[in-house]
């Protein structure tokens, strides 16, 4: 009940303040810090390291935005949110942006009044099961007990998938990924379903990752991306184009190694426009001309961030797949900087 009242108060506060806060950019500048909503801890995507510093793929987007806006990639207050609290936190103004494995759906965009600023990871819902269970396909999971994170799109996809295939299951709703992993490893559910990237991330933390397999079926489209409140288009543009800058930089071959050299001016006008040596794209955003350079200086371009946090050299071991550049058969396609 206490929790309920708390949500009620939050929701009311959300509606009271959602209208008032229009100029997020000014607010963030005045505060000197950006509040970024992240998960409560998914390895590779957002998790505090041994020193308590947040690291990860989603965290890198927050840091890039903070660097572009405030000039300091550490001027970010990371606010851990659960599947349940994330939207209220964003709507109430507690956080300025949400970078938390959040699926871009119609109702979230339109009905919940948020604005998705792009996709930083193309994902799909998968299943993980113990290898010795002998299951190779999700269609063999008839009658199985399945752990799901509640308050996410996954429980709707799951219901649809099992109904569509005419098989039954027992749902075990859990609140956080950590709880799900605890129940799954204790054997109180046969399979665990969530976005395939998160499955890979959590499996990396298990005692014996090889004892678990991720089943072949991907049962949904889950475009994950950062989002902001509806109605503040200037702030939305900043987040959208910072993400696009990271993606475009990879396509254009701008890396953290050659960034300083490129920023001085190149033969490629698009790189020049992106990094501010030509034109005034930064000014149009309400920032200065070095905004993209600062964002790229934090951890490099999209590809570098991917490789460092969740790529094949890390424990999480995700291949680029759909998340390769469009020139390499993937879906990443940043609109032109012009």
């Amino acid at each position: 009940m206490k929790k309920t009242v708390f949500f009620g108060a939050l929701a009311t506060a959300a509606l009271a303040s959602g209208v008032a806060s229009a100029a997020t950019l000014d607010e963030v500048k005045a505060r000197g810090k950006m509040n970024c909503g992240v998960t409560t801890g998914v390895p590779g995507f957002a998790e505090p390291d041994a020193n308590g510093v947040w690291q990860g793929f989603d965290v890198a987007v927050c840091r890039a935005v903070a660097a572009a806006v405030l000039g300091d990639s550490d001027a970010v207050e990371f606010v851990p949110t659960t599947g349940k609290t994330r939207f209220t936190a964003l709507a109430s103004g507690e956080i300025d942006m949400l970078a938390r494995n959040t699926t871009w759906t119609f109702s979230r965009d339109v009905d919940l009044k948020f604005e998705f600023t792009g996709v930083n990871y193309y994902d799909g819902q998968g299943f993980m099961a113990r290898r010795d269970l002998g299951v190779t396909s999700a269609k063999e999971l008839d009658g199985a007990t399945i752990c799901i994170q509640t308050g996410t799109t996954t429980e709707l996809n799951l219901a649809d998938f099992f109904r569509g295939n005419g098989i039954s299951y027992e749902p075990v709703p859990v609140e956080t990924g950590a709880e799900a992993a605890q129940q799954y490893t204790a054997g109180s559910c046969d399979a665990y379903t969530t976005d395939a990237s998160a499955l890979a991330a959590q499996r990396a933390n298990f005692e014996d990752p090889t004892a678990h397999i991720i089943l072949a079926e991907i049962i949904s489209k889950e475009p994950l991306g950062p989002l902001v409140r509806h109605g503040d288009n200037e702030w939305g543009d900043i987040v959208r184009w910072t993400l696009n800058a990271l993606i475009a930089a990879e396509e254009l071959g701008v890396t953290s190694a050659n960034l300083a050299e490129m920023a001085a001016g190149t033969d490629n006008p698009e790189i020049n426009r992106l990094l501010g040596s030509e034109g005034n794209l930064g000014g149009m955003l309400g920032l200065d001309s070095d905004w993209a350079e600062r964002a790229l200086a934090v951890a490099g371009n999209y590809g570098e961030i991917f490789d460092a946090n969740i790529g094949e050299s890390t424990l999480i071991n995700l291949s680029r797949g759909l998340n390769a550049q469009w020139t390499e058969g993937g879906l990443l396609y940043a609109p032109p900087f012009r």
Binding site: T4, G8, S107, E155, L156
Partner: peptide
């Protein structure tokens, strides 16, 4: 709280309605 105040609230985004109903 888990059905109406949890999943239904999250899927429909109708926070005020569901919380009032819960109360």
């Amino acid at each position: 709280t888990g059905t109406l105040g949890g999943i239904t609230l999250l899927q429909t985004g109708r926070a005020i309605e569901t919380i009032l109903l819960l109360m």
